[in-house]
């Protein structure tokens, strides 16, 4: 610790250029830090009835606190919000319970909790069973919606990606061509165009009278889109599995699917986990794009709250809050992924 500290200090004046940089950063900190601290903490207002109770020289965190529930739950009816907590809580408890299980069962339980997620969202958030009223998806919003879109898209992208990755490496030319074309086309277009396909083009493609919920359309489209990226991640994992494994598995008399299911994929997926987490971070951030097609995710909820007549002129607070939420989640997951990667390298 002491050695580290000393080398930190020595780095500050290692060369004339280094000294100049140290002075520059010190000056910049002197200019900015007091202003930021004054705005964010000292002059900030944490409790206020409405915007008039806030001062203009400091942040109005009272606005964030007052609208916090809406940022989390969107426009979901207030009396029913416990259902969202249950819908997210059940898979989460199952996932956490895997921590006390043995290493071998852990994977299965985590996999099960991912499978449970869409079911519990459908049962509790949408409702219509067990005497719970149906809550239309147009009322879903906030951080809950962000999580619903991100988690279900990536979870369904996993099987799609596995099939596409195997397809791309297939010895059958037609299968390889179809998979490769799908992957390359999907990866070359921006996500906004895919959302447009889901929201504007899709109704043309289904027979008249068939209506598919807009949120469901969005999730399907993002799943297929993410599937293409997932395929490339898993293809990387498949390539990283030693050729000897393929040969040994074939020598054991395993057929293609048996060898994939029991020998190759378990290894390939384990190698791909850090990259899959990174992919999830990317799509977690990209769910913000759904505001273009009029869904109210966290960012869109915050933006619409800034035009609330009771709280006018607190856009900066809104942006800072939304950025902080995304930062905490993405940074945390990023750290986790790097930790997994480091652990794999040790083996």
């Amino acid at each position: 610790m002491n050695g580290k500290f000393m080398s930190f200090i020595r780095g500050l004046y290692a060369s004339p250029f280094s000294i100049a940089m140290t002075l520059f950063w010190a000056y910049l900190a002197f200019l900015t830090i007091p202003t930021v601290v004054n705005w964010a903490v000292i002059n900030a207002v944490f409790v206020a009835e409405d915007g008039d109770g806030c001062s203009r020289s400091g942040a109005c965190w009272a606005f964030i606190i007052a609208r916090f529930d809406d940022f989390v739950f969107g426009r979901y009816p207030e009396a029913e919000r416990w259902r969202i907590i249950v819908a997210f809580g059940l898979p989460l408890i199952l996932a956490l319970s895997s921590l006390i299980m043995s290493q071998k069962q852990r994977g299965k339980i985590l996999f099960g909790s991912i499978l449970l997620f869409p079911i519990s969202v459908l049962l509790f958030m949408y409702g219509g069973v067990l005497g719970m009223e149906v809550v239309e998806t147009r009322l879903w919003g906030g951080f809950a919606l962000t999580l619903v879109i991100a988690i279900s898209s990536i979870a369904s992208a996993l099987p799609i990606g596995i099939l596409l990755a195997l397809g791309r490496r297939s010895h059958m030319p037609v299968i390889a061509l179809v998979s490769t074309t799908f992957i390359e086309v999907a990866r070359s277009v921006p996500m906004i165009t895919v959302l447009f396909v889901a929201s504007i083009m899709f109704p043309f493609f289904v027979p008249e009278g068939v209506e598919v919920d807009k949120l469901l359309r969005t999730i399907i489209a993002v799943s297929l889109f993410a599937g293409a990226y997932m395929a490339e991640v898993i293809r990387g994992g498949l390539q990283a599995v030693d050729t000897g494994q393929y040969e040994a598995s074939a020598a054991m008399g395993h057929g293609y699917w048996q060898s994939m299911r029991f020998i190759i994929l378990p290894q390939a997926l384990r190698i791909s986990i850090p990259a899959i987490v990174n992919l999830f971070i990317g799509f977690f951030k990209d769910t913000t794009l759904v505001l273009v097609i009029g869904l109210f995710d966290l960012l869109n909820m915050v933006l619409s709250a800034t035009s609330d007549p009771k709280w006018l002129g607190f856009e900066v607070e809104g942006y800072v809050f939304a950025a902080a939420v995304y930062f905490i989640f993405c940074f945390g997951m990023g750290h986790y992924s790097r930790h997994l990667e480091a652990k794999q390298k040790q083996r």
Binding site: K285, L289, Y326
Partner: peptide, 11 residues
């Protein structure tokens, strides 16, 4: 890296 691009542009 950890904040959505859209939020960045809107800001």
């Amino acid at each position: 890296r950890n904040v959505p691009l859209l939020l960045n542009i809107l800001f």
